[in-house]
Design a protein around this nucleic acid. Structure first.
Lengths: 339, 339
DNA sequence: AGCGGTTTTTGAATCGACTCAAACCCCCAA
DNA sequence: TTGGGGGTTTGAGTCGATTCAAAAACCGCT
């Protein structure tokens, strides 16, 4: 019932607690005979080391927190998987927390993680400028921003979202589209704002030849995309855009679904480009063109930066890693049959 | 830098550590004046309570582990969300761990969680019979099986997968299908085996009128479903089944995609029913019929059972909660046009 | 001033594992 | 026999917060 402690192991093995601790941590300095005796006692008692006590003493935990905007978005699931993979190699646990883009929930999670004295926190913040993050760092919990660029005070891994938006935009323009709609979320989310800026840029470069209409959704969800799609599909054909760039794949999938429901053909009546290239994008019945981000790599690199900072805090210099996205063209934005 | 401890707070506020602890835990028994002084000191020092030390002393953690087979499967993301929601109400953290259906990774996570002395573990096990789970419980870490029925030695929440398989099967049979294929995963996963048993049952009830061919995939993934779909699509039309029941929605989506790629119409040439009713099922371009499980409720109930066991271990009796699934019919299995 | 009764505050003991200086053991050389 | 040197083992002190019996402070009243 009650798990046994190092003390009981010591008693049973007729050694001191110090020796048991040595067997656990530096078995090579203990004589083989004693070591065996201790192991036997451990097995007999079903002893499991109390990581909490250990952590209290040595002061550093083997856990990192990963706070994301939406666990249900496969993009973040993949980031998490990347993070976990590297953490695993370093005997470290990743605890995944969902802020659901709610500042209050984010705050609670940060509080909890700090109280637990985690080794560090990886976070895609609701608001990257929040003083809370600086506080954490100042009090000794290193923070790495994920999918969101920092400004020198901390480490970050991000993807060039402006470039991503630009890629999507110029692709559509190249394909001959002159009326394009952008479907995005609240611009308070930096990534989203940047993607928007990117496509606006691409449009501007054409010199006024292309018309861009923007839809702003309250949340980056399938349902939101569907709603936007319905609205767009309802427009008279001559005013209706011929292409849509969605700020993420969830929106794009919803948008696509609305087209199907309204009998519009993709890509002939409406081309669609999404963002993130989640697995479901390729699996959609009209496979979705999408701006691909190195999802697992984002997570992996974030853990890497964190470990670097924790292992050698002295000579650590904060770094901002930025990856380049690329465009994956699939059927949803294939060349239109000329009408 | 170094976070300050209760001792420094005491010093600054000119009280004893006991008083600081009281302010933190039972502020009402401390005189208002002292209380204010202590709060001020806490603010000044940026003191953050060390949950690790607290936990060591009081012996119980406010964290539960949730170990799932696949974080990238939205089904589990939803289960996690449900679990988190209820845990949140009880000031408890959920740490999400991904076993990726790999017994070794599962084992590592269990070890870590036990060492951390978590309050309890919710798990969708790779192998529900593993002695490791019994060990955990015996040593004092309560375990609740999720989406997998227990045999009386522990609590569990599950969904009647046989019924689910039966629902899908009889639905397809009712719709007039006489050649049906089942696309599932390794039968070592209990849920999968049960779903299979369910549809076989439904088929058996027709008295040999219906033919059922089963495909077994190594993993329950989109890619697997696609591969199976290609194989089925390649059959000559007369031998090809007219309907498919997939063991989960990921498979169903892959299968659906393969149909589209091969030019087979859904549901006219091939009806499809999936399992789990993840959000992407409804959002697929041919909205997917699917057996719905109460995903969030599963997570929520699991936490509930755990809390019950932890709060009143004496009078706790292990319970096995079983939910009924229901079938959501969408376009992918709509009535066929009579040929 | 002294007393009984409350309300507050104190501080040593505790949780379990780790650390490290000191003690111990054994063997060999002087 | 003694001394020294390696390899082992010991055990008290420590990490930070909680607990609780005991001490202290306070109050109203005689």
């Amino acid at each position: 019932m009650a798990t046994s402690s190092i003390k009981e192991v010591a008693q049973l093995a007729r050694v001191s607690v110090g020796t048991v601790s040595n067997v656990l941590n530096r078995p090579e300095i203990v004589s083989p005979a004693t070591r065996e005796r201790v192991f036997k006692a451990i097995r007999e008692l079903g002893f499991v080391r109390n990581e909490v006590a250990r952590h209290l003493r040595v002061g550093r935990s083997r856990t990192v927190g990963l706070v994301v905007l939406d666990v249900a978005n496969p993009f973040f699931a993949d980031v998490a998987q990347g993070a976990e993979a590297l953490a695993d190699e370093h005997d470290t646990m990743v605890v995944l927390c969902n802020s659901a883009a709610d500042p209050r929930r984010e705050r609670r999670h940060l509080d909890q993680l700090e109280q637990q004295r985690v080794m560090g926190i990886l976070i895609t913040p609701v608001d990257a400028g929040s003083p809370r993050l600086a506080e954490l760092a100042a009090r000794g919990t290193p923070v790495v921003l994920v999918d969101s660029a920092a400004t020198g005070l901390q480490c970050s891994v991000a993807v060039d979202d402006r470039l991503g938006g630009h890629l999507a935009g110029s692709h559509l323009i190249e394909r001959g589209h002159r009326r394009i709609t952008y479907v995005g979320g609240p611009p308070s989310i930096k990534q989203v704002a940047d993607r928007h800026a990117g496509i606006m840029n691409a449009v501007a470069e054409t010199g006024g030849d292309v018309e861009l209409v923007s839809h702003v959704l309250p949340a980056l969800s399938v349902a939101g995309g569907r709603a936007a799609g319905e609205r767009v599909a309802g427009l008279p054909a001559k005013r209706r855009p011929t292409a849509a760039f969605c700020a993420n794949d969830l929106i794009a999938l919803g948008f696509l679904q609305a087209m199907a429901a309204r009998g519009l053909r993709v890509p002939d009546d409406m081309a669609i480009v999404g963002y993130d290239d989640i697995d479901f994008a390729a699996a959609a019945a009209v496979p979705l063109s999408s701006v691909r981000q190195p999802r697992e790599l984002l997570g992996r690199t974030a853990v890497d930066l964190l470990l670097e900072e924790v292992t050698a805090p002295e000579q650590h210099r904060h770094r901002q890693v930025i990856f380049q996205p690329d465009l994956v063209v699939r059927e949803s934005s294939a060349l239109r049959r000329r009408e």
